[in-house]
Design a binder for these strands. Sequence first.
DNA 1: AATCTGAAATTGTCGGACAATTTATCGTCG
DNA 2: CGACGATAAATTGTCCGACAATTTCAGATT
Lengths: 223, 223
Amino acid sequence: MPKTLAAKSDGSPGVVYRGIVDGLYRGRYVPGQRLVEADLTRDFEVGRGSVREALSRLAAEGLVSMNLHRSATIRSLSRAETRDLVALLEVLNGFSARLAAERVEEGANRKMMAEAYATLADPEVQRDFLRFARARNAFYKTMTTIGANHELARLMPRTNVDLIRVQFRSYTTVDDDLRMEDYRAIYDAIDEGSSRKAETAAKTHIRRLGDAIDKLPDAAFAG
Amino acid sequence: MPKTLAAKSDGSPGVVYRGIVDGLYRGRYVPGQRLVEADLTRDFEVGRGSVREALSRLAAEGLVSMNLHRSATIRSLSRAETRDLVALLEVLNGFSARLAAERVEEGANRKMMAEAYATLADPEVQRDFLRFARARNAFYKTMTTIGANHELARLMPRTNVDLIRVQFRSYTTVDDDLRMEDYRAIYDAIDEGSSRKAETAAKTHIRRLGDAIDKLPDAAFAG
DNA sequence: AATCTGAAATTGTCGGACAATTTATCGTCG
DNA sequence: CGACGATAAATTGTCCGACAATTTCAGATT
């Protein structure tokens, strides 16, 4: 049946790909966990080739790591890797926010941004880890979409941001109120079309996140 | 025979992957060209699965584009895509140069950087497109390596820089002397450990490249 | 010449097969 | 009893063949 149906959108590999990313958020998979091809083949009811393709795509994005003749594993960030990733995200998000501010006037951009922020700011949403994570991703994605730099959109390591979120989900990194203040500052700067302010606000937010992560105990990291 | 040998380093998919990237530089493949799986299977003497994996890896990096049920093709940049890519490279290379300047004192970094620059500055090398392209890649790679941000190193869209180089190889983008001046400025700033200067120099160089590309005729672009 | 139609080409996916390698198991020995 | 090493099991890397889904192409029709 999977042979003829070909799934809805992206084919069998896409099913596995999305299934694993989703499973990460739902806690079915945790950093460091082994992903055995045979198991995935059974769970998702697709051929091993499709599983393989999904895994290599995930590996290309950095969400899983593959070593020769060793099972793929959900990547687990070391302290150094996390620091590197945060530093990079600071640059990329700053760039993304700047572009978004520059183009907020065009089309329905202002409205899209407002909606994304409204969802993120909803106290109801903030109480649910899964819903908040989705809203946060949507917020950043909207920002990037508005910025309209397709190469940036292609590169934005959403999945590795996912990794940070998931790996440190049980630790409170940044105070909730402070975090929402950051998002508000980013949103306001974009809304008012101030590219300079938007870039700074985004960078400040990420830097604050990095500082908080630096204070986490070693137990939160791998290797 | 390929079944048991497993190739030297990265397996059969790696052979195909490297073969295509190399073929791009050698002019065997040109942007827009179709890559038929059966042909690659014959040319590289590997199974179709391996070809497929190589293609999807290349697609993940943006060097080839794959559409459902349509052959993979060497990606060909439109004017807008090129502009987006250049803007992104400006940010990333600026970041990379800044990090390199910050760490030039450590280990053998200064020496490595000097060697990479020396090769790039060799008039002999500059006369050969292939050798110069390699030297240029080595220069940037060294810069990134010295910067020691592994996430940046993982993300650096080397292959898409390749695309720019290859797609516009028959056009003179920036005057050779001016270009070498740019590289020298970047190198000097890194060597003297001035992160601010290095970032600016790298950004200036990319921006200059972007300006030159803007002046190219439509015929140089796709779509 | 433009359009339609059906055959050929090509991709997407599956299942099976087997070598290479890693991982787990277990018996032996100090 | 625990370290060590050999053997078995598990797992990955790769190839092959098959067939449906889709696109592409060539020829026929209008």
